[in-house]
Amino acid sequence: MQPAERDEVEMLSLMLLIRRFEERASQQYQAQKIGGFCHLYIGQEAVVVGAVAATRDDDYLITAYRDHAHALARGTSPDACMAELFGKETGCSKGLGGSMHYFDKARHMYGGHAIVGAHVPLACGLAFACKYRKEDRVTLCFFGDGAINQGAFHEALNLAALYKLPIVFICENNLFAMGTSVKRSTSLKQIVDRAEGYDIPGEIVDGMNFREVRDKLKEVVTSIRKEPHPAFMEVRTYRYRGHSMSDPASYRTKDELEKYRLDDPIIRLRAQLTREGKLTNEQFDNIDKQAKQTANDSVKFAEESPEPPLEKLYDYTYVS
């Protein structure tokens, strides 16, 4: 069964929350409150929010290391997300996973995986379990354009097609795998053609347009629920920031970045809703204010949270 239509203003709020959260995270990283690597999703918000709007809360979701938005979109609390970045016990992975390893079992968010392409077979396992148990859940497997040249990705697509698994492979094509452009990494002219090689239906989607992501995915998901099969979406998007916090992104031009900023997914959805009389400027300002407040509160929560206790160091290696 499909969920009721999700309110678009709520979805816009979610996109704003993700953006304000990551802006705060970026500041905290620069203030050295956050360690390790930190990859920001800013610019890509319409992809995961569009996907969430097209699916059920009990569908499975798994992604790579640029994962903050995927947890937030699934409803993981901003407090738990920020606390994870601070390495605190109140984090969504108890401070043991960090930025790249967000997990939320209760919300069917299966990570947060940091070896490029290695989670694509895991996604097949999630989808396999749904089919094995005769459930009508769909697995959403997100990955970047960098993953499509990994062996694990190819093996997983073949397995998904062979076993007719209920899964959508969502390639968030932001044009760069770290500093290497798709043109320099991939033999194909368009990524979606990878799917054809495995007899998996694929399409190209405008990832800066929330409605397009939602509507195209909804069609695909409806088809999968009727009769399990894999599908592939090349979602064209753009990250405004570098690959990680330490990357100044000097491999691309200011003009290119500006071009995408003008096509910002939040501005676009706002304009659509305003034009249709569903959102006033005042409402938007209030939503944004709220998002900023929530993000600020999450920093405070993270700062005040306790570190994981040393006595528990050995508690997570094995279960009984």
Binding site: Y60, I62, Y110, A118, H119, V120, P121, L122, A123, C124, G125, L126, A127, F128, A129, Y132, G151, A152, E155, A156, N158, L159, L162, Y163
Partner: peptide, 27 residues
């Protein structure tokens, strides 16, 4: 459905097993 042949893709099917185990199957 329970005894499953695979292609020669050890990385793929080992990972599939791990994913299935995440949601409680015992591969």
């Amino acid at each position: 459905e329970r005894i499953i042949d695979t292609p020669i893709s050890e990385n793929g099917f080992a990972g599939l097993g791990v994913g299935a185990a995440m949601v409680g199957l015992r591969p």
